[in-house]
Amino acid sequence: MELIRIADVQKTYKNGVVALYDFNLSIKKGEFVFVIGASGSGKSTLIKMLYREEKPDKGEIIIGGINVAKLKNRKVYILRRKIGVVFQDFKLLPKLTVYENVAFAMEVFSIDKKQIHKRVLEVLELVGLKHKARQYPNQLSGGEQQRVVIARAIVNKPKLLICDEPTGNLDPDTSMEIMKVLEEINEMGTTIIMATHDREIVNKLRKRVIMLEEGRLVKDYEKGQYNDERN
């Protein structure tokens, strides 16, 4: 079943830079997709459009039945509730504990406190941070912080998890740990799209790889690799 369909998308920034050109892509439910490409290839723009931080000038982006390209500002939350987003720079609230940061994503739904408690501990266990629930983000290592972000992203059981270079700030070992968590989440049925520069991870995991170059999709491999021919 198709979860994401991107058709004829074009995006030009105000300064005239064409970020995406004639872009078409289809992603099925349960897939794990790497998006690779050099800086300026349009990779970030693509990811940002998926969670509606950017709007395309032309074309259609349909995620789980929602036409993201036409979504109004005040309705963005409808999309955001169906997806989880993981960033390179974490975006955790420094004044809240690990537990509160994760619970924060559930509180926006006005869910019952007991239910929140149960589910937050569940996801913290999944990412292996249950014992650090009461600590603050600045007391954690980078890898641990990223795991909190992942916990927050999946706490509402989204169908789609969007990761924008989640391992960009982490060392190789920690990166592999994060990837293990992501694979586990993927196995439970969540579709994952991950933008990355990390050659090692892409080659090791052997998932679908989409390569962007100057705003166009140039390669789309099942079980692909990060080839050396260009990078």
Partner: peptide, 16 residues
Amino acid sequence: KTEIEIMRLVGASNIS
């Protein structure tokens, strides 16, 4: 700003 950004990211509606 970050707080608002995160609130939006996790799906808080503009009104809330």
